[in-house]
């Protein structure tokens, strides 16, 4: 009995030790980013561990020099639109795939899943051609504007998959009871399924927000002017072909990471729940 207890304690120590190490490994880059953001340029070049004197001015300089105010606002608008659109369209697509039987439903689902296997680099060219065509033929410009930055990302196969998995798990009895009360699919979705979907919806929202916030290649492709460029472009300002101003770049990186961290801390519980419900490992 004592040996069993000892062995279980040993396992626990091993587990916590391993997790602790992983935590340190994951946290170190953030700590370095934070420390470097308070250093002088010379200190980053000399690779010292701690700044001799905290350089708050780096934040002011980074904010001003890279026009972070504009980029921050743009990123926020783009992310909110992407999250809203993704939640709306993914839920509308996931619901029938999960709860309305129709011929070819599984085929449609497999095709949607199949799009996840196509690398992004393959679709970039065709996507741009489509956006370019829409830019010429629609009443509002798409390039250098919010539509090109948001609309192509409002339908996500991953989000559809995640929400479908959750919606399938809602007991049939709830649907039967709702039908008895005269509810149709839309009412069932809005009044019963939606409140139950809080965790997966927040998870999808979180993933979409992070993806949107960090995107750089696509925004660079569809924008030529700063009016709608996101914050990742602002960070690029501190990198030139001959070197980087690491202290300013890191100050900018801290600023640009804050919203993601804030959102994560606000929905941490639901996010973890959503991940575990979907059967995915984060």
């Amino acid at each position: 009995m004592a040996t069993e207890r000892q062995s279980s304690r040993g396992k626990r120590w091993l587990t916590y030790g391993g997790l602790g190490l992983c935590g340190v490994a994951a946290g170190l880059p953030f700590v370095w980013m934070l420390l470097a953001s308070f250093m002088t340029e010379g200190e980053t070049l000399r690779r010292v561990l701690l700044p001799e004197q905290v350089q708050w001015a780096n934040y002011v300089l980074a904010w001003k020099e890279a026009d972070f105010g504009l980029y921050f606002k743009n990123s926020l608008i783009i992310a909110v639109m992407q999250v809203g659109g993704t939640l709306l369209f993914s839920l509308m697509a996931a619901y029938p795939l999960a709860r309305i039987p129709f011929r070819g439903r599984e085929v449609v689902f497999v095709v949607i899943l199949g799009t996840m296997m196509v690398p992004e680099m393959v679709t970039t060219g065709p996507n741009f051609l489509l956006i370019n065509w829409l830019n010429r033929h629609s009443p509002i410009p798409w390039l250098n504007n919010w539509p090109a930055l948001t609309i192509p990302f409002m339908a996500s196969a991953f989000a559809i998959f995640l929400l479908r998995q959750f919606l399938r798990g809602i007991p049939g009895e709830l649907w039967e009871a709702a039908r008895m009360d005269g509810a149709g699919h839309l009412r069932f979705l809005l009044q019963i399924a939606l409140p139950l979907c809080r965790a997966p919806l927040l998870t999808v929202g979180m993933f979409t927000f992070i993806g949107s916030w960090n995107s750089l290649a696509w925004p660079m492709l569809v924008t030529n002017t700063p009016e709608w460029r996101p914050i990742s472009v602002g960070l690029q300002q501190f990198v030139s072909e001959a070197g980087a101003e690491v202290h300013l770049q890191m100050a900018g990186a801290v600023v640009s990471t804050l919203p993601v961290l804030l959102v994560y801390f606000l929905i941490q519980k639901e996010f973890t729940e959503g991940i575990s419900l979907s059967g995915l490992k984060a």
């Binding site: 970039t124 060219g125 741009f128 830019n135 290649a217 660079m220 492709l221 030529n224 690029q236």
Partner: peptide
């Protein structure tokens, strides 16, 4: 004058621009 990103970003923009017919 427009900042097009790094050389790599500009090359990407040009490659898709060549296909889409939108060039500076």
């Amino acid at each position: 004058g427009e900042y097009g990103g790094s050389y790599s970003h500009i090359y990407n923009k040009m490659l898709v621009g060549l296909q889409g017919g939108s060039l500076p």
